[in-house]
Amino acid sequence: MSLLEFKNVSFKYITDDYVLLENISFEVEKNDFITVIGKSGCGKSTLLRLITCLETDYSGEITLCGNPVKNTHGYAAFMPQKDLLLPWRTIIKNVMLPLEAQKVPKSQRTELAKDALARVGLSGMENKYPSELSGGMRQRVSFARTLLAGGELMLLDEPFSALDSLTRIAMQDWLLQQVKQLSKTVMLVTHDIDEAMLLGNKIFLLTGRPVSEVKIIDVSHIKTRKDLYSDEAAELKNKLVSRFLTDDSGKEQS
């Protein structure tokens, strides 16, 4: 059985007068690393909002291991675009936040949080405040917090888009390593085609307006940054870019 499944899901924000997602279906297998791309505003982030039950007013069915997810929280770990660290909490207290939600006994929290921080390479930073850390470090704290949020499924919403390009490259390589060690299932939303090809083993390409189809592209052969420069990868990239462009012209005509 697949870990996560969308069955004929349609969704529209109450405040919008157009449908955002129309009748989409897809499956995510265990240990998949899915990168989701699509034009800005097409509903990539909304997809994650649906999975985390921040939006529940959809038709169709979303299931996790066969069980509908509606109105349950805390089974999928969500990492937002901004780090959203609370400035009045120290790093370790920030990382503990999901543990507090899960009502983990106090005695265990410190240990778990320390482990998570060690995993992201931030041992010794426990008692600093978020304002004392660089953007890349803050993002890693955010990742540590996501690790403790529990659940097999990690949902990352453009986690590196706010970082400068050098830090972003470093963080991408770092994330690949982390995910390999953790054996988690990941869905990562991005608007960077290179990032999508490098990190994911499958790309979910959201197409149409409203989004009515999720095209699945296998990119498991692209494993390192070097592979991005192969002819095959270049061709795929070209195809994806031109896809976006033609999609655009189609919209202009209508």
Binding site: T52, C53, L54, H73, G74, A76, A77, F78, P80, K82, L84, L86, W88, L97, P98, E100, A101, Q102, A149
Partner: peptide, 23 residues
Amino acid sequence: ENEELMKTFGMSSLAIFFKLKLP
């Protein structure tokens, strides 16, 4: 956004009030 993130952690609205809004 912070409120929503805490919701995805499974936090109750009362806990969100004390841990986010009040501070």
